[in-house]
């Protein structure tokens, strides 16, 4: 058996995930191949270290509050969605009234119209820019569809 074939079975040998015939072939090979025997030893050591890495033990209170955390977040997200829809409706209405009662009013001079118009334009540019950046970030999400 060649060394390359052994390497493919090496982790399975250590984790007892290969069949008895493969195990026998690995053991036979490492009897006369010092390089592979040394590699197995090294792998065994790193495996032992890794197996001592326990997952964190969180207190009961942490798990008891867990669902509330999720529920509150969903509730808050719903709140923000409703708030945003309401704000958009009001903004559209305010814009309509602004055009109707301010920009189209012949008694208001051109300077305040110009000032308010530029501020409104600036606000629209800022909002569009933020939305465009968000959409761009979503489309270019590096790990959006990580390959399996």
């Amino acid at each position: 058996m060649k060394c390359d074939e052994i390497k493919a079975l090496l982790v399975g040998y250590l984790d007892d995930e290969i069949d008895s015939e493969q195990r026998r072939r690995v053991e036979e090979h490492i009897l006369h191949c010092k390089e592979c025997a040394a590699e197995i030893e090294e792998m065994r050591k790193i495996r032992e270290v890794l197996r001592k890495m326990s997952e964190p033990k969180m207190p009961d209170a942490f798990w008891q509050r867990y669902w509330n955390g999720i529920y509150n977040r969903i509730e808050r997200q719903m709140g923000w969605i409703l708030f945003s829809i309401g704000a958009i409706v009001l903004l559209v209405f305010a814009f309509y009234r602004l055009v109707q009662n301010f920009f189209l009013d012949p008694q208001v001079s051109i300077m305040p119209k110009l000032g308010i118009g530029i501020i409104a334009l600036g606000a629209i540019v800022l909002i569009v820019s933020i939305f465009r950046e968000k959409i761009f970030a979503m489309r270019n999400e590096r790990y959006k569809e990580v390959e399996r």
Partner: peptide, 15 residues
């Protein structure tokens, strides 16, 4: 198996 082999090998190198 192949990913585990490469990962452990790399970790052994580092640690």
């Amino acid at each position: 198996m192949s990913r585990l082999y490469l990962a452990r090998k790399k970790l052994a190198e580092i640690l």
